[in-house]
Computed example of a mutant assay.
Amino acid sequence: MFKSILALPRAVWLIGLISLVNDSASEMLYPLMPLYLASVLMAGPKALGIIEGIAEATSSIFKLVSGVIVDRTKKAKPWIVLGYSLAGIGRPLIAIANSWLWVLAIRFTDRMGKGLRSSPRDALLAESVNKNQRGITFGLHRSMDNAGAVIGPLLAALFLSLGVPLRDIFLWAVVPAIVTIVLALCIKEPHKEAVPQASKFGWSLEGMPNQFKRYLVVAGIFALANSSDMFLLLRAREAGVPQADIPLLWAAISLITTLFGTPLSALSDQFGRKRFILIAWIAFAFFYIAMGLPGISMFQIFALFGIYGLFKAATEGVEKALVADMAPKGLAGTAFGWFNLVTGLMLFPASFIFGWIYEAITPLYAFLFSGGCALVAFMLMAFWVDGKMHFKPNLIKS
């Protein structure tokens, strides 16, 4: 497997490095957001749910826009550079925000940048390798992305241990932002075969396989279960995890995802995507239901977060490889755009509903809601989505 990883094209490694640096900044700030909102801006779970829901919905809409445009223009690099630039500019501005509404506006800009870069980046990755390398390619990208998510929280923990104010930590995010933009400018797009522009090209799902359309429905239902991870950190803090250890807990999840993301995604190239997704979704349902139980101990929190890390490792790269498998030739950007749109838009009601139940009723019912949605998605994925939607790429000639 190591030879296969090293043999991947330069573009795959460069995009992975960009994600690593960018996520170092993003994840340095991410676990601090609930603390910043609560201790500095005096905002509660409802505000957190609104901020994260709107931010992720914004990202999803722009993922479709950029995906369709990149299929039309056949140019991914400009959107990747623009996307990382907007995110890099937005994050440090949180340090000067004086209300949660300003944080919402800044997160909106940050997520718009993510939306503009994500589908073009994923399409570029899919087009840079053969079909039987997609699992390992997206797995490597997610592993490097999560490596940044290890470095970021460790930096946050270091800053907190040194007594650096939360506002100042947000200002430090400007350094990796500059590095990310410079690296993005170095991207060289792979040569693309000329694909005639078909009349079906557009914003609709026309021309997409029925299996892909069904998968979109199921993925949307599962996304309703997947509310903002900030609620998990909030739950851990309420369960007794010290504030200074919250970034370390988040870093541990990312470390697990980094270590297991590439090998698990590579296995999906041989044994199929669907079984990995099904196993991971069951683990997700168990994790959420267990997290909501009253009297949960710190040891149990740490063990459950380990399961959550394995869930992310088994799905993040595999889900994207599955989308690439099903996308018609020349429409990879649009396919990724629709997948990101559907799953991202559902994050708004997911975070809003979860936050409302968490604050107005009880955390137990909020976590049961997410676990229940995950179980519904599991059943539909197993018995409704056509089994032909997934194949073993190693049996298909490139």
Score class of each variant (00 low, 15 high):
Arg91Ile: 06
Gly16Ile: 03
Leu104Ile: 12
Leu375Thr: 14
Arg142Ser: 14
Gly148Thr: 08
Ala123Met: 12
Ser297Phe: 03
Val179Leu: 13
Val323Thr: 11
Ile18Met: 10
Leu248Cys: 01
Ala324Gln: 09
Ile361Thr: 07
Ile94Gln: 07
Gly337His: 00
Val12Pro: 06
Pro45Gln: 04
Gly113Leu: 10
Leu37Asn: 03
Leu155Met: 12
Asn340Lys: 01
Val175Tyr: 01
Gly113Asn: 11
Arg111Leu: 08
Tyr84Pro: 07
Ala173Ile: 05
Pro9His: 00
Pro263Gly: 11
Asn340Leu: 04
Arg72Pro: 00
Leu154Met: 15
Leu249Gly: 02
Cys373Arg: 04
Pro34Leu: 12
His390Tyr: 14
Asn132Ser: 14
Phe354Asp: 09
Ile282Ser: 14
Asp23Ser: 08
Leu82Gly: 09
Pro209Tyr: 09
Trp79Thr: 00
Lys63Gln: 04
Trp338Lys: 00
Ile301Asn: 06
Leu140Arg: 12
Phe348Leu: 15
Phe2Cys: 02
Gln300Thr: 10
Ala157Thr: 10
Ala57Glu: 01
Gly337Gln: 01
Trp172Lys: 00
Asn130Gly: 15
Ile246Arg: 02
Ala377Glu: 09
Ile51Glu: 01
Leu395Glu: 13
Asn226Ser: 15
Ser119Glu: 13
Leu154Ser: 11
Ser99Gln: 10
Phe284Gly: 00
Leu104Asp: 02
Phe201Met: 06
Ile246Leu: 02
Gly115Ala: 11
Asp23Tyr: 15
Gly330Phe: 13
Ala314Glu: 14
Leu37Met: 10
Leu158Gln: 04
Asn226Pro: 04
Gly16Phe: 11
Ala156Val: 10
Asp71Asn: 01
Ser119Met: 08
Val81Phe: 11
Gly295Pro: 10
Ile106Val: 14
Leu125Phe: 01
Val175Lys: 09
Leu347His: 12
Ser254Ile: 05
Leu216Asp: 11
Gly53Lys: 09
Ser26His: 15
